[in-house]
């Protein structure tokens, strides 16, 4: 029982990262119908920006500012900066390819990702960095289940972010424009909503979210390396599509599902078979729910 409860906590933490990162994927996928294969590397760049800002702020203000204030400052500044990375990716890799086959844009995304990775390696060298702890880690023992305050923070912060995004999309004018765009991105521009505003915004929000996920990731797994985004990115891609097109909720749930599968499979089966069994489960899910969880029906005209 202890193991079970402990693993629920573990899976919630791990799933939070998949959920938040896959939301960024899902938004681009929903609004523009494009795969954003650079997203994993946007997450990586966001984490490194967060790392830089955190190191800087800790050096400057740690004497007279409480830790949580620095933490919030780091998040805000990093989100702001990282959103420009998202806009940059959109401008370079996706805007020139509007109207081109969808897969071509996916390839540019992939290539921008490789440039980010290599660029990082060239600029910062092969050394791995350790993300400075912004919050003193405290471990609580609740009836044999170990929970750290960082874990709680990650789970809560991810939920808060998702809820805020949900509100933004449902309640604001911008959110409405995005929803309209995902409904029909050919007709909506004729109604006076510029795709050149909405598309960068989508990327910026996605990148902002990814960078916050990166900072939280840095708190939980403080080893940074240039290739850290690859596997997370591809798995978030699985979650985003599993969730269904244009469904933020779906992507988030699929992210948590992926986290739960990856945590619970090693608990029940020998852990060497983790990937084999975990992805077989996904295959089975897709066989029986071929449209994901919340997705709208795909148009048959959908072309790559």
């Amino acid at each position: 029982m202890d193991i079970f409860l402990q693993n629920i906590i573990n899976a919630l933490q791990w799933g939070s990262f998949y959920a938040v990162v896959s939301i960024g994927y899902s938004m681009v996928y929903g609004v523009l119908m494009l795969f954003n294969f650079a997203h994993g590397d946007i997450f990586m760049v966001g984490t490194y920006i967060g790392f830089g800002i955190a190191t800087l702020l800790l050096a400057l203000f740690s004497a007279f500012m409480p830790g949580w204030m620095i933490f919030i400052l780091v998040i805000l500044i990093t989100m702001f900066l990282a959103s420009f990375v998202g806009v940059f990716v959109e401008m370079v890799g996706y805007r020139p390819l509007r109207g081109a086959p969808r897969a071509s844009a996916a390839i540019t995304g992939l290539m921008i990702g490789i440039i980010f990775e290599t660029g990082n390696l060239i600029i910062l060298g092969a050394q791995r960095f350790s993300f400075p702890p912004l919050i003193e880690s405290v471990t609580y023992n609740i009836g044999g289940i170990y929970v750290t305050n960082v874990k709680v923070l990650i789970i809560v912060a991810s939920l808060v972010m998702m809820f805020a995004l949900h509100l933004f999309i449902k309640k604001t004018k911008w959110g409405m424009a995005m929803r309209a765009m995902s409904y029909d991105f050919q007709a909506v521009p004729l109604m006076g909503v510029s795709i050149n505003v909405i598309a960068p915004m989508t990327f910026a929000i996605g990148a902002g979210l990814a960078s916050v996920a990166g900072i939280l990731y840095g708190q939980a797994y403080p080893v940074l390396d240039p290739y850290m985004g690859i596997s997370l990115g591809w798995k978030a891609f699985v979650a985003a599509i599993l969730g269904g097109r244009g469904s933020i909720m779906g992507a988030a749930l699929a992210g948590y599902l992926l986290g739960f599968i990856e945590m619970f499979v090693p608990m029940i089966f020998p852990s060497t078979f983790r990937d084999l069994i975990a992805y077989s489960i996904i295959l089975v899910i897709l066989t029986f729910r071929p449209r994901g969880f919340f997705g709208m029906a795909h148009s048959t005209q959908l072309r790559l």
Binding site: F35, F237, V238, I241, D275, A278, Y279
Partner: peptide, 21 residues
């Protein structure tokens, strides 16, 4: 078998899952 029951991007992730498997 599972992916051609419907049209769309699911092939992308089913094939990705297959690669991991």
């Amino acid at each position: 078998v599972p992916s051609f029951r419907t049209r769309g991007d699911y092939l992308a992730i089913i094939s990705l899952a297959f690669l991991f498997i």
